[in-house]
Simulated scan of single mutants.
Amino acid sequence: MADLVRRAESAGAGIGAFNVIQLEHAEGIVAGAERARRPVVLQLSENTVDYHGALAPLARACLAVADTASVDVVVHLDHVTRTDLVAQALDLGLPSLMYDASALTHDDNVAATRSVVERAHAAGVWVEAELGEVGGKDGVHAAGVRTRPDEAASYVAETGVDALAVAVGSSHAMLTRDAVLDDGLIAEIAAAVPVPLVLHGSSGVPDDGLCRAVSHGMRKINVATQLNKVMAAAVRRALADPDLVDPRRYLGPGRDAVADEVARLLTLLAPTSY
């Protein structure tokens, strides 16, 4: 991840980071990245781990998909709140994770995050954290508390994180693409902290908003709901045939739709390869 970030910063590009729920997601995301000739991040959220009942099977599958790709692929554990999952990620060899201690008080958040950073760095693993409140978890789209540049700088210094997700107007799980980001705040935070910024809730941001965010300093762009939307639409079209029962006949079109959208978004975020 550190190498991808350095390359993206040099190119003024955004790194596309896409959430994986099932194997077809991972295959479609990498196919889209190969078509666009751009690196990509495969993300596994704690919610997805809970859905499958364990981290190892899907994580190992994603690592295998990444290993055989013709572009650089990083497998990342996203929004993990439990230290047992952090330990599992390190044991499995995942190179990157996002630790979310936002439910704790500020002091406890700093202490817990610093502890995870020390443990992860000892294993050579890149750590992202979040400061501020990006709305939309559990279906809630209330505006969150925006990240303050001075607090972001202090948080990074105190925890030693490698990247920071910030609250600048986006919201998780949006089905519409009409979120308005605070470009000025993005630029202020980018100038205040020495680590790359991460945009969560990017599915709700229109294309021009994503481009502006990257130009103002956002580096890693997380996308989940947008891929689920295009996959679901393709599956619904396929299942219009009442005699269709083979999952490959409807999940295959869903996977292809994911590949198309990933290729489009990666090219949008990085007009030239890096």
Rank of each mutant, 00 (worst) to 15 (best):
L42E: 02
V49F: 02
V73S: 00
T68D: 11
A54S: 15
L58Q: 06
L44R: 00
D67E: 15
L90T: 12
A66G: 09
L55K: 10
A66K: 02
D50V: 12
Q43E: 13
D72H: 08
L44V: 11
V86S: 03
A54F: 10
V75Y: 07
V40Y: 02
S70D: 00
N47S: 14
T48L: 01
V74E: 13
N47R: 15
L77V: 14
A64Q: 13
D78C: 03
N47H: 12
L55I: 03
V41R: 02
R60L: 12
Q88W: 01
L42C: 03
T83V: 12
T68W: 05
Q88A: 13
V49S: 03
A59M: 10
A54W: 04
A66T: 05
V49D: 04
V71C: 08
Q88D: 14
V80W: 11
P57W: 06
D78H: 07
S70W: 05
A56Q: 00
L55W: 04
A56F: 06
T48A: 10
E46T: 13
L90N: 08
V41M: 12
H76V: 07
D72Q: 03
V73A: 01
D91I: 09
L55Y: 00
A87R: 14
L90D: 11
V73D: 05
L77Q: 15
N47P: 00
R82V: 03
T81F: 15
V49T: 11
D72W: 03
L90R: 13
V40E: 01
V71D: 03
V65S: 09
L77K: 09
V71H: 01
L63W: 07
V80A: 11
L55E: 04
R82I: 04
T83C: 09
S45D: 10
T81Q: 15
D78Q: 06
D91G: 14
A69F: 01
V65H: 00
P57A: 08
V80M: 10
V74Y: 07
D78M: 01
